[in-house]
């Protein structure tokens, strides 16, 4: 159980929920979240926006019954968090890192950029964040010590400087991640993508979130959600 400290409406269906969960997590991991007792049946896989040792935050979009309930919860109410699950993004040793996020897929990139900065004060960190409509979601990234490029509408992948991208970490619609992967190919960048799938258990038992990879089926919740681009976009 974790207690909600804040649940802010950022507009365009997006919310930022801060909880008092202190449990350590790695950037790119997620929790199975539920803010209700038995119904709806399943918990919702939501990636970690930030973990600072004292709190764990989630940036989420209202897409169905579960997230609708979460969006109506207020300070002091309790949520159940199972996790953190999944592998998360690897530490990047290269001098330059480019993070590309689309819509609610921007969520794990905050924690990721923050940790990269913490580990290397000199690293060149660039974030490209694409949103469909204007909202306050981009404001949540303002505090980062990194170059943050925000675009509303259009394709965020059109704005990326692939030649000088370094390692690319991306999360968002599959078509966006695939485009980033394809366009970075000529420069031989290493690309990591964070996949999104429907999940039931979150622990690797149900095989509901299987992701086809070059090396055979993998569980998005367990071996993922982060895969190397070439592993997933091999066809």
């Amino acid at each position: 159980m974790a207690v909600i400290i804040e649940n802010k409406n950022l507009g365009d269906g997006m919310f930022l929920m801060k909880t008092d969960c202190t449990k350590k997590s790695t950037p790119g991991q997620f929790y199975m979240v539920r803010g209700w007792d038995r119904y709806p049946l399943l918990s919702r896989p939501i990636s970690i926006f930030d973990w600072d040792g004292m709190t764990t935050s989630f940036l989420y979009r209202v897409v169905g019954e579960g997230t609708e309930i979460l969006s109506k919860m207020t300070k002091g109410m309790e949520v159940t968090l199972h996790g953190p699950y999944g592998n998360g993004f690897p530490d990047i040793l290269e001098d330059t890192v480019t993070l590309i996020g689309g819509g609610i897929g921007t969520a794990p990139l905050y924690h990721t950029a923050k940790e990269l900065r913490k580990r290397d004060p000199k690293k060149n960190i660039k974030l490209y964040l694409g949103f469909e409509n204007k909202s306050d979601a981009a404001k949540a990234f303002e505090e980062l010590d990194a170059q943050v490029i925000v675009r509303c509408g259009g394709y965020i992948t059109d704005h990326v400087d692939y030649e000088n991208a370094g390692t690319i970490l991306t999360c968002g619609p599959e078509i966006m991640m695939k485009t980033a992967y394809e366009r970075s190919k000529p420069y031989e960048s290493k690309v990591y993508v964070s996949m999104e799938k429907r999940m039931a258990c979150g622990v690797g038992a149900c095989l509901g979130c299987t992701c086809k990879t070059e090396g055979g089926n993998k569980r998005t919740c367990k071996e993922g959600p982060v895969f190397e681009g070439g592993e997933v976009f091999f066809e």
Binding site: P40, A200, C206, L207, C209, T210
Partner: peptide
């Protein structure tokens, strides 16, 4: 078995439809 392609899970009121396909 590789299991089924496409969506494998679908939540219903108090239930869950699955089509894993014996992966």
């Amino acid at each position: 078995k590789q299991g089924n392609e496409g969506i494998r899970l679908w939540e219903t009121p108090s239930g869950l439809l699955n089509s894993i396909g014996l992966e």
